[in-house]
Structure formats: structure tokens, C-alpha cells
Design a protein around this nucleic acid. Structure first.
Length: 780
DNA sequence: CGTACCATGCTTTTT
DNA sequence: GCATGGTACG
């Protein structure tokens, strides 16, 4: 091998990367180079062991991680090619040669690797094989199936409870029923299995709702998120041939973040690895491997049915059962290359308080570093002020620090507000990572519903969403009549819609609108295989009048929506570019359903990052602020009386601490706004578990001066609003939304209203504000 | 049929 | 304190 992969690695990493056949559990502490171990091992399989890339399956936790892994593997191979073909490093070659090499590598290697999330990979499997599946009640799907998102699933459950079964939705809260169904699927229970497990009335009713829910999904030719994994598992259980095919196909399986897999995902892995034999007795390990990487201390998704005891049981299941020191099926990566020694000590001390774990410490490889500072704030506003003062101080002193190197991590999304307000006030650029997905915006869901209705004629939910969007005079009564007819005749809604005589009798005055709508869907459905996804999107946007309607509204909000719709079109184009082998509409719809908001956050940013602790997993920042360490907030009040839940919160805290490379700041407030009320708050349990000798705080005797002086000096002076005559083009400053420009003035005098475009807002960039809004000031 | 206003309940965390 | 969903009215 021309590139010496192994020279960059420590002995444990080397052992992991060189592993060829059989099971291996890699216990990878935070910052221990596990992504490197994974990518190098894949490269090593192909280069050294001549494994066909087609035979490799790698599971990641996010789409972003999948992209990055593919990218890193591609670079590794391109580097290798550069050395063998040109005798120099990739970097030193001219740009077009680099591109050429990378595209060669793509065609011959990376294209054939299956790398993605459980959901994306299973979705791909289903597109091959879902038509061979039939569930316990004979329910069936076709490969143009829709993927229902959480809100689709939620409203389906609600509809079943209220309309289908006439149950009191006070006694059966749709949300918790939906959660119960999801949990059943994640534990590998069919409606019948679930029914059998229930002893009381309530459980039996939920089992019935679960069964009807599956009926409805099948009727719509739709699956929910959990089904993407759950259906392949059922299919592999029942169909030996299909199972054998995929078993043979994926000779080498790699799984990242193994501690966050659930029972169903585990069963999938087991069926693929052993072809259904019990893992412990599986003997055919020649040219076959299961390589899982994880860290029980970073398991933070049990609310999603993730079960880290699966990781702890790996050695029992697949392994040789020998003690840790002798085993050949476990490797521990304990050297930490990310954080200073002080930070690691904090993390180690904290996690020691957990009882359920695999023994492991993070070993420092860097310097001691500075002590962590813990700030006790008066309230959440004071806390935010502390954070920004520290950031400004550090940024001013260190020339190599820019805003992109800071992160603020919190337990709940609602905590972001105080920080946003103050960041805006100081003009510090920031971005919120996670939060509202692009594909969850109303206008985007509308357009996707058109596309889903076209791709999947059974998808009544999508049809109903857009049958009167934009307004075609099809109202509630008409829709109810149509639905009723569909139920009585036992046919999909589309059958009724596409029958013109039925429509004329059923819809009366509204029939014109319905017929018009049906025509659009039919026209584009006829072209689904001949026209590209982007052409189809453009055509639908035009024919449906969706764009025309938004333009006609002429409001600022409508204009923002228009921009988002345009962006969706760009997303389709981008999809087509990135997926040359599958440019279909169905392919795009699947990728849209599986996209998360974390996926398109650029790594090299110059903005402060704000996110939940969950979103921060896998990331690192030179300077981290871990905020809101209060009982009831972090740990969450819902976990206070459950020791296992407290341990999970502690792991979450551990994840937060280990994101920091150079400096860590921790804060908590004495009181905090909750639902609009001020509530007193006490310090988090976790604060007491951190070693005091490695920390400074403002509650100790000596309070550094910089922490006592508050109120920014350069805060803009307030201006009396009634004195200002506003006109279009004026620049304004708002305490909450930041800097903006007036785009419209409605009315006059003291009652006037302004439309203002703010640069800092995400999504709806415009706000309509009364002229007397207290936060509003003029600039220049 | 569409809009405007009012009440409710809500905050864990997300592929 | 806010977003969502339901009801009443035009």
C-alpha cells in the first residue's frame, strides 16, 4: 500500500483499522478519533483485503455524517492514486487533476459503498423489495410509497381516535398513543404482538388503534419513520431468499454510534450479519464482519427507544466472551485528542457517578489548559450577558479566535431566546443549529404534498392537503362528502376524485375546482417517468397556481414563502446533480423526508453556534458555554424521580463537556422565566459532581472584576419613536430582531405600521411592527 | 366558504 | 409567551 495509513494511528486505532473478519466492538471515547478509525478501516478493507466496495455497508447517525465519511474515504483514495500515478501528494497537483482523480475514485469505489443512516439505507432496500412484503394482516405497499413525517403520523392517529373509532381523545391523547405505537415498532412488535402483551382495557384499545393505524398507512400506500426499519426486519424474518440476498451482499457491516441503536435496528443488523442464525453461534466469519463503534457514556437517545445495553451486550452476543484484557473482539480508544486535561478531568469525574457503564477513562494527550469557570447568574438575561461578555473579551484578546469558534449549548430549544436577543443587540453573528427543518415549512410541505400525490395515487393525505391550496372553492363540506363517498365505496379517495360524474353529483358548485385540480395531478402523473424531477416541480408550481397565488398576495410573508419555494426548486436541481443514477421524483421525495436540519450546516462558519446538547453530538468547538445547569431544567424535571433517566441526563452533560477543546464555561441562574412566569431555580445536581479544584466561579470569595461589571457601554441609546418619521429604505435597529430595513409603511402618524426586513432572522425575514414598538430604534 | 379572534396547553431531547 | 386549533361571524 503506497499510502501508509497506519503510521498516523495509535496502537488501539491500528488494531481497529486492521481488523478484517468477525465481530469487533470499538469503545470510542469522545474525541478519540473514531471517525478516522471507521474511514481508514473501510479504505483498508478495499485496499489491503481487496473487498468489493459493493459488499460494504456503513451506518451513520446523520446524513451529514454519511456525507462526511464518503468524502473522507474519497480523499483517502484520491491521495493514494495521486502517489501511485504522479508520485506526489494530492494537494500539490493542479486543480483539474485533483478533480479528475476524485471522480475516478467516485466511479470505481465510493459510488458503490452503501453509507447512510439506518433510515436512508432501509429506504433504499425497500425501494427494491417492499412489493414482496405482506404483513400479518395482509397489508401491502408498492415502491412508490410515501413517507409520512411525524405530523402526518400524528394527525392520522388523531383522526383514527376521533373519527374512526369515536374514542374520547381526552382519555386517549393522540400524542401518547402515537408514542406508544412508535415504541412498539422500535421494539419489534406488530399490532398483534402488542395486543398480546396488553392486559388492561387501555392497552387493548391502543393495540386496536395501532392496528387501524397500520390499515390507514397501507391504504395510503405510506410508511412512517419507524416502518422504514421495521418493515425490512419483518421482511427478512419471513422471506429467506430476500434475507439471504442482502446477507450475502453486505459482507462487511460497520455501525457508528452503536449505543444509540434500538431493538429493531439491532435485529436488522443481526439478520443481515448472520442471516438469521443466533449471533453467538454464527460460525461463518470468513470474509464477513460486524464492526460497531460506540460509547455507552454518550447514549442520549433512549426517549427514542435507543438502548445502550445492546452495546454492552455485544461481546455476549457476537464476541468471544473473554475478559476485557484478553478479548480479541473489543478495542478501547481512550486517548483523547480534543480537549485539555482539565476539561477531561471534569468529564471523567462527572461520568463516574453513573452506575451503568463500561469502564473507560478519557486519557489526555494535550496540555493542562485553563480552569473551567462556573457563573451563577441572577436570571436568564444575566446569564446571557455573562456569556456574551466572555465571548467579547476572549475574541478581543485572541487574534486567532473568531465567532465561529464559540458554541452555546443548552438542554431545551426554548432557552435560545435570551441568547439570540443579546447576540443581536451586540451585533454578533450567530446561527441556530437544528430547530425548524426547511422541509417542515408550510409552503414546502404544500409543494411536497403535490409531488407526493402525483407520485403515489393512494396518498389521500397529500391529496387532501392541497386539493384547496391555493383556494379553488373546495370547502369543508365538499371534502367531507368526497371522503364519505370514498369510505362507503371502500375505494381510495383518488378513485372518487378522478370520476367526473361522481364529482359533479357530489361536489355541486365546487366540482369545477375539483376537476381542475384532478386534471393537474393527472397531467403530471402521466409524465412522471419521462420528465426530470425538476421539470415536474416547475410544471406543477405553475399549473397549480401556487406561485401565482403567492405573487398575487403581494405581502412580505408571501414573498418569503416564494423564496423558500424557489429554494426547494434549487434543492431538486442539487439532488439531480448529486444522484445521477437515481434522478426520479420518488428518490427526491425520499431524500426530502429523510433530511434533517443538521444536515446542511457548513462546518467552517464564522458565526457563534447555538444548539441543544443533543444536536451537539459529534461536534467540537474551541470554546463552549454549557448553560442552564439547574434542577428541573438540566436534569429535566421529567427525569428527577427516575435514576436511569438521571443517568441519561448525566451522559448528556458529559457530551456537552467533551465538546470543548480549549475552554469551558458553565452557568446557571437563580431564577428563570418559564411559560412566562418567573420561577426560582436551584443549581443542578451535576454541578456538585464536578471537581471544585479545577474550577473558578463567581460564588467564591474573589470575584473577577470583569464578571461584576455589566451593562454594555456601547449599547445604542433609545430614541423616542413618535419623533421619527419613517419611510421606505430607513435603516432600523430592533432589540430583538437586529438590524433591518423598512420595506413598507402602512398608515400614518402614531398609528402607522412598518414592514421591516431583518437580515438576522431565519425563515420569515420580515416583521410587521407598530411604529411605537418599544424595541425599535432608528440608525443614522 | 373564508376569515378573525379566542382559548388552550405547552417545553425535553430527533432520525 | 407563544403557537396551534377551534369557534363564531361575515
Amino acid at each position: 500500500m503506497a499510502v501508509d495509513f497506519l503510521s498516523h494511528l495509535n496502537p488501539s486505532q491500528k488494531q481497529a483499522v486492521q481488523h478484517f473478519c468477525g465481530p469487533l466492538l470499538v469503545i470510542a471515547g469522545a474525541g478519540s478519533g473514531k471517525t478516522r478509525a471507521l474511514t481508514y478501516r473501510i479504505a483498508n478493507l478495499v485496499l489491503t483485503h481487496r473487498v468489493d466496495p459493493e459488499n460494504i455497508l456503513a451506518v451513520t447517525f446523520t446524513n451529514k455524517a454519511a456525507r462526511e465519511m464518503k468524502d473522507r474515504i474519497e480523499r483517502l483514495f484520491a491521495e493514494q492514486q495521486a502517489l501511485t500515478e504522479y508520485g506526489q501528494s494530492l494537494q500539490s497537483l493542479p486543480g483539474h487533476v485533483q478533480t479528475k482523480l476524485r471522480s475516478q475514485v467516485y466511479k470505481s469505489i465510493t459510488k458503490d459503498l452503501w453509507i447512510g443512516t439506518f433510515h436512508a439505507l432501509c429506504c433504499r432496500i425497500l425501494r427494491f423489495d417492499i412489493e414482496k412484503f405482506q404483513d400479518e394482516k395482509g397489508r401491502k405497499w408498492t415502491k412508490s410509497f410515501s413517507i409520512f413525517d411525524e405530523s402526518d403520523a400524528q394527525s392520522l392517529v388523531k383522526d383514527i381516535i376521533i373519527n374512526q373509532l369515536n374514542i374520547d381523545d381526552k382519555k386517549f391523547d393522540p400524542r401518547s398513543v402515537r408514542y406508544a405505537i412508535s415504541n412498539a415498532k422500535n421494539k419489534g412488535l406488530t399490532p398483534r404482538d402488542y395486543e398480546r402483551e396488553q392486559s388492561n382495557f387501555k392497552g387493548k384499545v391502543i393495540a386496536n388503534i395501532y392496528s387501524v393505524y397500520q390499515d390507514k398507512l397501507a391504504e395510503n400506500n405510506a410508511v412512517d419513520f419507524d416502518d422504514l426499519i421495521w418493515i425490512p426486519v419483518q421482511l427478512f424474518r419471513q422471506n429467506e431468499q430476500i434475507r439471504a440476498y442482502w446477507h450475502k451482499r453486505f459482507r462487511h457491516i460497520l455501525v457508528d454510534e452503536y449505543q444509540d441503536t434500538n431493538r429493531t435496528q439491532y435485529e436488522l443488523l443481526q439478520l443481515l450479519t448472520t442471516n438469521g442464525e443466533s449471533a453467538r453461534s454464527f460460525k461463518e466469519w470468513d470474509y464477513r464482519s460486524i464492526f460497531v463503534v460506540g460509547d455507552a457514556d454518550q447514549s442520549i437517545y433512549s426517549f427514542r427507544m435507543a438502548d445502550f445495553t445492546i452495546l454492552m451486550g455485544f461481546q455476549q452476543d457476537f464476541g468471544d466472551g473473554l475478559p476485557d484484557d484478553d478479548t480479541r473482539t473489543m478495542v478501547k480508544l481512550e486517548e483523547n485528542y480534543r480537549s485539555t486535561e482539565n476539561i477531561l478531568q471534569l468529564a471523567n469525574d462527572l461520568i463516574e457517578n453513573n452506575t451503568e457503564r463500561i469502564d473507560k477513562v478519557l486519557k489526555p494527550t494535550r496540555g493542562q489548559g485553563e480552569p473551567t469557570f462556573c457563573y451563577r447568574a441572577q436570571d436568564e438575561i444575566d446569564e446571557a450577558e455573562f456569556v456574551i461578555q466572555q465571548m467579547r473579551r476572549l475574541e478581543a484578546v485572541n487574534s486567532d479566535l473568531h465567532w465561529g469558534k464559540f458554541a452555546i449549548l443548552y438542554r431545551t430549544n426554548a432557552q435560545s431566546r435570551a441568547f439570540e436577543e443579546i447576540l443581536v443587540r451586540w451585533g454578533v453573528p450567530y446561527k441556530i443549529v437544528g430547530g425548524l427543518r426547511f422541509y417542515d415549512r408550510k409552503e414546502i410541505k404544500d409543494v411536497l404534498a403535490y409531488l407526493r400525490a402525483i407520485a403515489n395515487p393512494s396518498d389521500s393525505l397529500s391529496l387532501l392537503r392541497v386539493i384547496n391550496t391555493p383556494r379553488r372553492g373546495v370547502g369543508k363540506t365538499t371534502i367531507e362528502a368526497l371522503q364519505k363517498a370514498a369510505i362507503e365505496l371502500g375505494t381510495p379517495l383518488w378513485e372518487i376524485l378522478s370520476d367526473e360524474t361522481s364529482i359533479k353529483t357530489l361536489a355541486g358548485r365546487s366540482s369545477k375546482g375539483v376537476i381542475q385540480f384532478v386534471e393537474i395531478i393527472q397531467r403530471w402523473r402521466a409524465q412522471i417517468d419521462t420528465v426530470s424531477a425538476s421539470e415536474l416541480v416547475q410544471g406543477v408550481l405553475e399549473d397549480s397556481g401556487y406561485v401565482r397565488d403567492l405573487k398575487a398576495q403581494g405581502t412580505d410573508e408571501a414573498e418569503d414563502r416564494l423564496q423558500n419555494v424557489q429554494e426547494l426548486y434549487n434543492a431538486v436541481l442539487q439532488y439531480e446533480e448529486e444522484n445521477e443514477d437515481d434522478k426520479s421524483l420518488i428518490g427526491f421525495l425520499a431524500s426530502a423526508s429523510l433530511a434533517s436540519d443538521l444536515d446542511d450546516t457548513e462546518e467552517e462558519s464564522t458565526k457563534v453556534s447555538l444548539m441543544t446538547l443533543h444536536s451537539s453530538k459529534g461536534l467540537e468547538f474551541p470554546i463552549v458555554f454549557l448553560v442552564g445547569l439547574e434542577q428541573g431544567l438540566f436534569p429535566s424535571y421529567r427525569s428527577l424521580d427516575d435514576p436511569a433517566a438521571i443517568e441519561e441526563e448525566r451522559r448528556l452533560c458529559y457530551v456537552g463537556i467533551t465538546r470543548a477543546q480549549e475552554r469551558l464555561f458553565i452557568s446557571h441562574a437563580r431564577e428563570r422565566r418559564l411559560y412566562g412566569n418567573r420561577e426560582p431555580a436551584s443549581p443542578s445536581l451535576f454541578l456538585g459532581e464536578l471537581p471544585r479544584e479545577l474550577m473558578d466561579s463567581n460564588t467564591k470569595a474573589a470575584i473577577p472584576k470583569k464578571f461584576t461589571e455589566k451593562k454594555p457601554q456601547s449599547k445604542p441609546a433609545p430614541v423616542l419613536q413618535s419623533d421619527v418619521e419613517w419611510s421606505v429604505g430607513d435603516r432600523v435597529m430592533h432589540s430583538q430582531f437586529g438590524i433591518g430595513e423598512v420595506t413598507n409603511v402602512f398608515g400614518s402618524g402614531s398609528k402607522a405600521t412598518l414592514a421591516i426586513r431583518f437580515d438576522n432572522l431565519t425563515g420569515m425575514k420580515r416583521k410587521i411592527l407598530p411604529i411605537g414598538d418599544r424595541g425599535l430604534t432608528a440608525i443614522d
